[in-house]
Design a protein around this nucleic acid. Sequence first.
DNA 1: TTTTCTGAGTTTGACATTTGAACTCTGCTC
DNA 2: GAGCAGAGTTCAAATGTCAAACTCAGAAAA
Lengths: 162, 162
Amino acid sequence: MSNSEKGPVREAPVSLTECGAALAIEQVPDRWTWLILREMFYGVSRFADIQTDIGIPKSVLSGRLAQIVENGLAKKEAYRDGSARTRYAYVLTQKGRELAPVILALMQWGDKHIKDGESALSLTDKRTGNPVKIGIVPKGGALPLRWLNYTPVDQPSDVKDG
Amino acid sequence: MSNSEKGPVREAPVSLTECGAALAIEQVPDRWTWLILREMFYGVSRFADIQTDIGIPKSVLSGRLAQIVENGLAKKEAYRDGSARTRYAYVLTQKGRELAPVILALMQWGDKHIKDGESALSLTDKRTGNPVKIGIVPKGGALPLRWLNYTPVDQPSDVKDG
DNA sequence: TTTTCTGAGTTTGACATTTGAACTCTGCTC
DNA sequence: GAGCAGAGTTCAAATGTCAAACTCAGAAAA
């Protein structure tokens, strides 16, 4: 990033109430909320599945899901597993889905700086199969989210795409 | 995003310990840490400046800064304001600076979904002056961070760039 | 020399949140 | 009508947060 270098900066040029980043942080304020959203990106949508996958206490999960729904990041949808009674799944809304670049940027950063360059998920352009990443692009130059394809790299898993 | 749609996903394809995003979240786990990093991106580096800018209790700031330094996101640098005694500033390392795409993606999302499209910061390509954004790009197609220029949009502020 | 000032903390004690375990509620299926 | 399972709620203990008061270092003023 860049600004003029005349003396130390004594305050942010954009206040907390006007800064999109600060406002976004209010809606995704903590570790658990991030991890829950990560699960939802992967398509994990049920209370118990999320709970065991990330090891969150049920009481906390319950509260976080309520916030997530209230903020419009996900919605509670009825589903029926076989002939069992109606249950609920939490699925991302458009607003929630559009957090994907944030999560992916986070992943890219973690892969580079914590995993020393090893990535557990490969991202490609669904049409061409070419690898993609998150980065700075001229306005209008980004690929739409719906062209993004992801495949786990290493461990034999059940999610795959074609 | 995309995966095959045969039944609900019951667990994430990438475990917490292998997922770059999950590992990244461990290093930036909460609201305060995000807000502190936001300050540092803007160049605010002094304890007292960060403290009053985001309204964090000193005791919490002290702890968070220690974590941030320990995780290698920033380093504590001596500085001397005029002839006064040596003091310390917290400045981002390369690792910390490379969180920029995450913060900017967050900002972009907040501007779109919380501020209804109004942005307080305009991002441009430093060489051409053309507007840029964060998005999905073919590998190798992203602009390097050092070409990024940001200018506060509206409020008469002291940070400017040319 | 002693005092004052200021940035950068630490300490304190009241308050809030998180945790894990146990409990509840609901409506199928046996 | 008993058992079961998913999705919670409730509880007490541990942990974290907050605001205010206190400490510490060293330069400068008195």
